[in-house]
């Protein structure tokens, strides 16, 4: 699906401003993401990319500007916000699986409590999703019994179980041992191929080249550059992006 079949982008940020005290963490951020698009956001630490990601489902409230998801203005706290969040999947750096629930219960909690699906239906769908991300045989274990890579794949299944319109990934591989990074990136790549709309904050340039439709480079709370991966990695226009790429791509 492209913007041609819709009246509006799926996720739209306009004139977004946010401060932490004196620190301007999001400055004049404008970004429109179409349905089916995979946008990878990169940038140095403290550039505001995580805050940007968390602002889209209002885990971080913004002070000025507008954020729309599927045309709807992000509501303030309350039931309307909860409803919107149910349509926006989120995958965290530290997995944040519910420690007191089994893997299966982690995946069925949202569908049962928020979507009001029957337990049988939710279990069936959860097992399909766990199989899809390759941890179907871990369904009855607790998160602490799984490796980091397995936990993160469960977290992806948990988000997918809500049938989200868009998935947000906030540095999904940054807390993983190196040999587990690829098993998570493979799942994300296959999601991207299946047409999921994704916003991915990552340092994995290989994933950006392979799966992104667009790379957004942030620095100092601003979007400095936005281009398709081929253009961005071979012919970056801004000095800041050139400098950043020279530091991370040389080794």
């Amino acid at each position: 699906m492209t913007s041609a079949t819709r009246q509006h982008p799926l996720v739209e940020l306009s004139g977004v401003q946010k401060w932490f005290g004196d620190l301007h963490v999001l400055a004049d951020v404008d970004l429109a993401i179409d349905a089916g698009e995979v946008v990878v956001v990169i940038g140095p630490s403290g550039s505001g990319k995580s805050t940007l990601c968390r602002a889209i489902n209002r885990l971080e409230p913004i002070q000025q500007g507008e954020i729309r998801v599927d045309g709807e203005l992000l509501p303030e706290e309350g039931k309307a916000l909860a409803r919107l969040r149910a349509d926006v999947g989120m995958v965290f750096q530290n997995f944040n699986l519910f420690a007191h629930k089994t893997v299966l219960q982690n995946v069925t909690l949202g569908p049962v409590k928020v979507r009001h699906r029957s337990k049988g239906e939710a279990d069936k769908r959860a097992r399909e999703l766990l199989d899809r991300v390759g941890v179907g045989n871990q369904a009855d274990k607790y998160p602490a019994q799984l490796s980091g890579g397995q936990q993160q794949r469960v977290a992806i299944a948990r988000a997918l179980a809500m049938d989200p319109k868009v998935m947000l990934f906030d540095e999904p591989t940054s807390a993983l041992d190196p040999e587990m990074i690829n098993e998570v990136l493979d799942v994300m790549t296959s999601l991207a191929r299946d047409g999921m709309t994704m916003v991915v904050i990552t340092h994995e340039m290989g994933f950006a080249r392979r799966a992104a439709n667009r790379v957004v480079f942030m620095d100092g709370g601003r979007i400095v550059e936005s281009a398709d991966p081929e253009t961005f990695f071979t012919r970056p226009t801004s000095d800041r992006a050139k400098d950043f790429l020279s530091k991370i791509l040389t080794h």
């Binding site: 885990l59 909860a82 349509d87 965290f92 944040n96 699986l97 949202g110 988000a159």
Partner: peptide, 15 residues
């Protein structure tokens, strides 16, 4: 992070 994960699934405050 536990509460953030729950909220991001669409669970309200009391759930």
């Amino acid at each position: 992070g536990q509460a953030e994960a729950a909220r991001s699934l669409g669970l309200g405050f009391s759930l």
